[in-house]
Design a protein around this nucleic acid. Structure first.
Lengths: 210, 210
DNA sequence: TTTACTCTGTAACAAAAGTTGCGCAGCGTT
DNA sequence: AACGCTGCGCAACTTTTGTTACAGAGTAAA
């Protein structure tokens, strides 16, 4: 584990902290589409993402979903931070978008490290900052963009995080992420295809270079 | 100043910290509708809200606005925190909803206190947590609610923070906060009046007890 | 009082998004 | 090949939201 830890967090944390992480951290490997966290579940540990992509979703009482943002390697989940420190339940859902590798840190260590390591404190603050910016970005998108623009940004961002111009998803899955209906997505995808921005296939969308 | 500081933050901070705040903090009193922060402005100090209500807005390139949430006494602005620590420009706009009293803390002190005082650290983390929850709430509202529900929640929340069932605002002002058009607001307000949830007057909306 | 301005109500229309229903193509299973 | 399932396309329609235009009410200043 130590190599992967160093590769991703070596520039952030001092050696003593890396050592501690290595001792208490639990290495975890999950396949694609694995539910890492459910709404309402208690948070017992905080994940450091080493490899892969995690998508963070919001869910309302009716079970409607909305994609908030993607986490990539080097990221951690601000909600977990927030919940650990606030001792509360998770307000979000986390699902692996690809297979992923994580290091799980027991929450007791978090407070300890916050006083002990300046680099850890900075990491936590930075994470909050980054997630805060992502949230603003998400709000911008739902508030200021129309569905066709949201859809296209969704596709490009998904291509970006997975580093693949081919998006493997059904129209229904995309509709869930954007909180709309399958028909609407099909309609708008068709329009994007007519504009020669994408190519449509079964279970697969190809982003065309502009 | 020390009394107002103690009254609002005494239970949070230890005496030594209160003393420091009292020494370096700048007391500031602003009237209603005063712009405390513009998008793109540099953040030089962090506000602790002592009295009044501040509304936090998001603005896009076209100048379209959207209300994010209200800050009340005991709150601080997470964006300021985030910007101070990240050394960046403000991404939001802050306007006093009522007249307000604040204590402005120079940003240099923030880092210092973060290592020095556990209570300060907790305050900062709690603020992040609270703001994070507010953001989720805002996202829920724009993503999952229709405009009529958003309007009604807006009115009840505004009544709650100002502690007044009479809301003094024009339809246009409400439209700006909810990022829609005046006509839409007028239409929906009329419907709410027909449902006997509100009473409409010029420049004034009365929330009726249910 | 007259004037000017702001705020609100309403109609008529346009655009965007959501809904329903159905047909068919692709694909794996039997 | 026949069957069944899922994914997609499409038409027709409804609802919601946004736009434009205008009239009248309320208010303040001249």
């Amino acid at each position: 584990m130590i190599q992967e830890l160093k590769a991703n967090y070596g520039h952030l944390f001092e050696d003593a902290l890396l050592q501690e992480i290595n001792e208490v951290g639990l290495f975890k490997e999950v396949p694609e589409d694995f539910t890492l966290m459910e709404v309402g579940s208690y948070v017992k540990s905080m994940p450091l993402l080493i490899h892969g992509v995690i998508k963070i979703l919001r869910e309302d009482k009716e079970g409607d979903e909305l994609l908030l943002y993607f986490l990539e390697k080097g990221d951690t989940c601000a909600m977990t931070l927030s919940c650990c420190l606030g001792q509360s339940k998770s307000e979000i859902k986390a699902i692996s978008e690809t297979d992923a590798k994580l290091i799980m840190i027991p929450i007791q260590k978090m407070e300890e490290w916050t006083s002990k390591y300046k680099s850890w404190r900075n990491f936590v603050f930075d994470s909050y900052h980054n997630r805060f910016m992502e949230m603003l970005d998400t709000i911008d998108k739902i508030a200021f963009l129309k569905m066709d623009e949201r859809l296209f940004t969704y596709l490009t961002e998904k291509a970006k995080v997975t580093k693949d111009n081919i998006i493997s998803a059904t129209h229904q899955e995309i509709a869930y992420d954007l909180h709309t209906s399958r028909v609407v997505i099909s309609r708008l995808l068709k329009a994007l295809e007519k504009e020669r921005k994408i190519e449509l296939h079964r279970n697969r969308i190809v982003l065309l270079p502009q």
